[in-house]
Simulated scan of single mutants.
Amino acid sequence: MKVVAFERSKQGTGASRRLRNSGKTPGIVYGATAEPQLIELDHNALWHALKKEAFHSSILDLEVAGQSQRVLLRDVQYHPFRQLVLHVDFQRVDPNKKLHTKVPVHFMNQETNPAVKTGGAIISHVVTEVEIECLPGDLPEFVELDLAKIEAGQSLHAKDITLPKGVSLVAHIESENPVVAAAAVPAGAAAEAAAEGETPAA
């Protein structure tokens, strides 16, 4: 995914406010061995890009003054109530260094799960993204968790996620192995099922 930005020379609150008033968003690029670089981006293009899941979890080609660099989106500051992006941070990536980042979890086969279809179970997505480490070239846009066989009362954990080659959970996620999805039968449905199983008194 390509992002076009422009060099920004002025910093400070006043300069940033004037930028935003002219439809631009201030930002910064940092990391690797280069100096931090002040940039500005077209606000509307950035706003639409931020709505795409891949923009948050993919390596982006950021072009500034005709020079392209590979970056990850690291931080976005939004206005508390207006549809306005106040600032963005991008981090340069070194193709030979492992990076730690979060990627979305896509939940597969929930609609066909027997516990949901016939047992009245409800699957809750406890975690919607997971922290991984990999080389930039191996970074997936998302990872998948198969919900086909989860039964009522069961939960699936981080280690149940299918990870692509070259990708691993970061150490603390690996050791904690948090719950990612859980299947439960609501109390009302459980009572109804129990009532249906009762035989009427003679």
Rank of each mutant, 00 (worst) to 15 (best):
H87N: 13
Q154C: 06
T162Y: 03
Y30L: 05
A148D: 08
L99G: 02
T128M: 08
I150C: 08
I132W: 01
G197M: 07
E144M: 11
K159I: 10
R17D: 03
G120H: 04
Q11N: 14
Q77C: 02
E144P: 01
A121K: 04
P80D: 05
Q110K: 13
V64S: 05
E192S: 11
G153F: 09
V143H: 04
F142A: 13
L163P: 12
G119P: 06
F55D: 05
E196S: 05
L73C: 07
T162C: 06
V167Q: 08
G153A: 10
L62V: 11
V85A: 04
A34D: 14
V88Q: 02
A202Q: 12
I39F: 01
A182G: 03
G120W: 03
Q67M: 10
A15I: 06
L41A: 01
H43E: 12
E131T: 11
T112N: 10
K117S: 05
W47N: 09
F90M: 03
S155N: 13
F6I: 10
A187K: 15
E131Q: 12
L147M: 11
E129S: 14
E111D: 15
R17V: 13
F107C: 06
V76P: 04
F142Y: 15
A54S: 14
A148S: 14
H56N: 06
P36A: 04
E7K: 12
V127K: 13
F142N: 14
V126C: 03
A189K: 14
L41T: 02
S168D: 13
E196A: 11
K24F: 12
E53F: 01
A183I: 08
A202D: 15
A5W: 00
V116I: 12
Y78H: 15
V127Q: 15
V167T: 11
S58V: 03
F81D: 07
Q83D: 15
M108D: 12
V170F: 07
L156Q: 14
V180R: 03
T33R: 11
